[in-house]
Amino acid sequence: MIARLAAAALAAGIALLTTGTAHAAVTLSSGHVDALDVDWTGSALTLDVRDSTVSPAVDRDPSTVTFNAVSASRTTVPSSAAYSFLGTPGSPVWILPQSQVSGILWPGFDTAGVPSGVLQGNTLTVKLVSVTGPADFSVYTTSSFGTPTVWFDSGNGLPDTRSLAVNTHAHANWAFEAAGTYTAVFEITATKAAGGTVTSGQKSYTFTVQL
């Protein structure tokens, strides 16, 4: 029995090394991570988390990761009407920022694992399928002039979709309008250049937001 268990453990370790995907549960609170890391297997799209808070970086199943918005990520909603999607001006909002800030998690999007030519138009679609949590969740970018562009917003109905080109590495602001735990479900879809659709399947992401 002991020999069989040892053999099973060894086989699992070999499989982990082969796939390059780490499955141990972790909480990420600071540093760089590609929350939505999209790769191409040769016939299908995959969606995982590329964790660069460790060296060397590892791929993780989203179900094993908790993204933590620490209390230092708390700020207030700007007075500009352009930010009304975040709530009432002056009210608290927690933001994992577009630009890296020490001590705060810096999540991004990465499609560099999808080679040019395999998808129609060299683009794929990121879909925010659903969100559960204590308040609204949104993802948006801010221009150099401070103008926001909303990518996803659970406050005005879901699903929301956003097209991304292959070989893209991008960052945005991830905003939470109250403390607590959120579950966001994402899916990647595309049309193959040769015809036919492909999907990563729906993946659940967990976020904890601290007071």
Results as ranks from 00 to 15, higher is better:
Pro115Thr: 13
Val129Ala: 09
Val93Phe: 06
Gly113Asp: 05
Thr123Leu: 00
Leu119Thr: 15
Thr88Ala: 13
Gln100Ile: 08
Pro107Ser: 07
Arg74Pro: 01
Leu128Val: 13
Leu96Thr: 12
Val77Ser: 06
Phe85Cys: 04
Ser63Leu: 02
Lys127Asn: 06
Ala69Asp: 03
Val129Glu: 09
Ser79Gly: 12
Leu86Lys: 14
Thr76Asn: 11
Thr111Asp: 00
Ala81Arg: 14
Gln120Phe: 10
Val126Ser: 13
Val114Thr: 12
Leu124Met: 14
Val77Cys: 03
Ile104Arg: 12
Ile104Phe: 01
Ser79Asp: 09
Gly113Ala: 06
Thr76Arg: 13
Ser73Cys: 08
Arg60Trp: 03
Ser73Leu: 09
Phe109Thr: 06
Val101Gly: 06
Phe67Val: 10
Phe109Asp: 02
Gly87Glu: 10
Ala82Val: 04
Asp61Arg: 12
Ser80Thr: 08
Ser91Trp: 01
Gln98Ile: 09
Val114His: 12
Ser91His: 02
Leu105Lys: 11
Pro115Val: 12
Thr125Tyr: 00
Leu96Ile: 11
Phe67Gln: 08
Leu96Met: 13
Leu119Ser: 14
Val65Arg: 03
Val118Cys: 10
Ser73Glu: 07
Val114Asn: 11
Trp94Gln: 03
Gly103Tyr: 06
Ala69Ile: 04
Ala69Arg: 05
Pro62His: 05
Thr123Met: 06
Trp94Met: 01
Val77Arg: 08
Thr64Glu: 11
Ile95Trp: 11
Val131Asn: 10
Ala72Phe: 00
Gly121Ile: 07
Ser116Asn: 14
Val126Asp: 02
Gly113Thr: 09
Leu128Glu: 14
Ile104Thr: 11
Leu128Ser: 13
Ser102Met: 02
Ser79Pro: 01
